[in-house]
Simulated scan of single mutants.
Amino acid sequence: MSLPILTIVVPCYNEEEVFTKSYTQLKMVLEEIIENGDIDRHSQLLFVDDGSADRTWEKISEACVLDSSVSGLKLSRNFGHQKALLAGLEKAVNDSDCIVSIDADLQDDVHVIKEFVNKYAEGYDVVYGVRKKRDTDTFFKRVTALGFYKLMKKFGLSLVYNHADYRLMNKKSLEEMLRFKETNLFLRGIVPLVGFKSTTVYYDRKERAAGETKYPIAKMLAFALDGITSFSVKPIRLITILGFLASLSSLAAGIYVFISIMMGKTQSGWASLMISIWLIGGLLLMSVGLIGEYVGKIYEEVKRRPRYIVEENINNLEKSKTPANIK
């Protein structure tokens, strides 16, 4: 029985400072798994440059020249983490039996990949890397992350708690996932929808090895909103319920005013009037904004524009498989 070919997909965006460390550590892990006889020697690292403005692509290109187990994919501009990851997955699925996705910042423990491969050998189709705790996060990030997972569960989508995009998928499960053709990607929500036999591996997350985070608060909140609106229409239903409750409140207020008039108390309160106007106005604006978010997503989907554009492709895996190079 032939050994499986593993590809480790690493999306990169302005990771010049950490690339060398990332490449070195991932290469070391890949060689260890090959030496243990768990994967084929044609297994590879695939770095995807998501339109970096620094020397990230130059470093990827240099690694491809010096190391036949490294391949590179350069996108024409910055399409975002999820689409860069998708580009790598779509390329890797053609030449691999199992694929691991991991960020380049080395916050995820690279040695856990060995456990991923072991679980794959046991027959699991999907292996999720899950953080044991969030001690390295700020208080705000811990609270908002917990709230996000709980909110998504209430909206009907059971995400794997404390799992980002550090996972292993076999060829079959990845091929099925790639059948989801939406433009607005939230992969950590799509993967559980695919199904198949899955398990989790727990690990401790570290601080960034170098460089700055590519997910400030604004991007995190936008990512969370994308996740919610991509998988549930319940927020729109909540608007309907809110409108119904507001109507009941208006009816109650009308009854109160009528009774006040009948009792001769006709002097109205300026504060209560202003509060009511601002409250209703705020609810209306939020409702219109939320509906607009869904309409905008529909607008993006129906145009069917490409989710990413590849500018350059360095594929060493195909070269290493040619008869002249096989030992």
Rank of each mutant, 00 (worst) to 15 (best):
A164K: 08
A222Q: 08
Y215Q: 07
I217D: 07
G195K: 02
D204F: 08
Y215R: 14
L174D: 11
N162F: 04
A209Y: 07
K197R: 13
R179Q: 13
D204R: 14
N170V: 09
L178M: 06
S198M: 04
G195L: 05
E175L: 12
G189I: 03
A222V: 00
K206E: 11
L159Q: 04
S173H: 04
E182L: 10
A222C: 01
L157D: 00
V160D: 03
G211N: 04
N170M: 10
L159F: 00
G195Q: 04
L151D: 02
N162W: 09
F223H: 09
T199W: 08
L174N: 09
K197H: 05
L168I: 00
L187Q: 05
E175Y: 08
V160C: 03
M177E: 08
L187H: 04
T200K: 15
E182D: 04
P192Y: 00
V194G: 06
K154C: 14
R188P: 02
D165F: 00
T200L: 12
R167G: 00
Y161M: 12
L159H: 10
F186N: 03
T183G: 13
R205G: 12
N162A: 12
E176I: 08
M220W: 05
F155M: 14
T183I: 10
L159V: 06
L178H: 04
L174K: 08
A164C: 00
R208H: 15
S158G: 10
S198L: 03
F186L: 06
Y166A: 11
F155H: 11
L151N: 08
R179P: 00
E212V: 11
L187E: 03
L157V: 13
F180G: 02
S173F: 03
S158W: 05
L151S: 14
G156L: 14
K219A: 07
F223W: 09
M152V: 01
G156R: 15
S173W: 05
N170E: 06
P216Q: 00
F223T: 03
D204A: 13
G189W: 01
V201T: 12
R179G: 11
K172S: 14
E175F: 10
I217F: 14
T200Y: 00
G211A: 11
Y215D: 10
G189E: 07
R167A: 02
K219F: 13
I217K: 12
D165M: 03
N184I: 10
T183W: 10
V194R: 09
V194K: 06
F155K: 07
F196E: 03
A209V: 08
F180D: 14
F186T: 02
A209Q: 13
R167F: 12
Y203I: 09
L157C: 08
L187N: 04
K197E: 01
K150L: 09
R179A: 06
S173G: 04
S158I: 04
T213L: 09
T200D: 15
G189A: 03
G156Y: 15
A209F: 08
L221T: 09
G156Q: 14
Y215E: 11
